[in-house]
């Protein structure tokens, strides 16, 4: 009488997938979030989830390097980067409603469509993840694509910067999934690079805000052709 059930994933697979789904969902939340500060908080949350994933994989699979990666990503992306950006935005106006180029619902639908695209493209590849379940890379790709959408569809400097940072989060998950053996030196170099990029984006944000008195990029229309 009882039909065959689809076997549930193992605890490790299920947990890792659920964590990665949180990364993707927070990407969607950033797409919607109207205020720049809530976006930065969402980014901090997403980074926390990513470093949590690194720790979880490290603990489950006994890979020492990943502890270091998780620690670095926690220190830099959860604490330093959001703090730096929030500090740079201290005197910026809170209200940024209306930086969406499209309605939120339409944006979410587009984002769903491109996520599905990313998931299916990756699913068709013969890339075997050494550590993580198969869906991880697809979810990471989806998060990367949605972060592109965030940069394209939001016309304020904070969203665009946060879009870039969260793109890096997506790539981090992808690298956990398929390139966990990438030497620690390179991984740490990535993080420092990110830190530099954050400072630069922050400086430019300040320059723009100091000059245009707005965080919107709609003012940036002088250069054409």
């Amino acid at each position: 009488m009882m039909p065959a059930l689809l076997a549930p994933p193992s605890t490790f697979t299920g947990t890792a997938e659920a964590i990665t789904l949180l990364v993707l969902l927070s990407e969607f939340a950033m797409l919607r979030a109207p205020l720049s500060r809530s976006q930065i908080r969402l980014y901090a949350f997403q980074s926390l989830v990513v470093s949590g994933l690194a720790f979880y994989v490290a603990a489950d699979r006994h890979i020492g390097d990943l502890y270091a990666v998780g620690t670095f990503s926690f220190l830099l992306k959860v604490i330093v980067v959001p703090a730096v950006i929030l500090r740079l935005l201290k005197d910026a106006p809170e209200d940024l409603a209306g930086s969406h180029r499209l309605g939120v619902a339409s944006m979410v639908l587009i984002a769903i469509a491109i996520s599905v695209f990313g998931l299916f493209v990756v699913a068709s590849l013969p890339i075997a993840s050494i550590l993580l379940p198969k869906a991880e890379l697809g979810l990471a790709t989806a998060a990367i694509l949605v972060s592109f959408l965030l940069v394209i569809m939001r016309s304020d400097v904070v969203s665009q910067a946060v879009g870039f940072f969260s793109l890096e989060n997506g790539v981090s998950v992808a690298s956990l999934a398929i390139a966990s053996g990438l030497s620690l030196v390179a991984e740490v170099a990535f993080f420092f690079d990110l830190l530099v990029a954050v400072v630069v984006l922050g400086v430019l944000m300040r320059l723009h805000h100091g000059r245009a008195r707005t965080l919107s990029t709609n003012e940036m229309d002088r250069l054409r052709g």
Partner: peptide, 16 residues
């Protein structure tokens, strides 16, 4: 400022 912003965003996404 505008050029630098466009540059850093587009190039960083590309490098992503």
């Amino acid at each position: 400022t505008e050029a630098a912003w466009k540059y850093v965003i587009i190039a960083s996404l590309g490098l992503g």
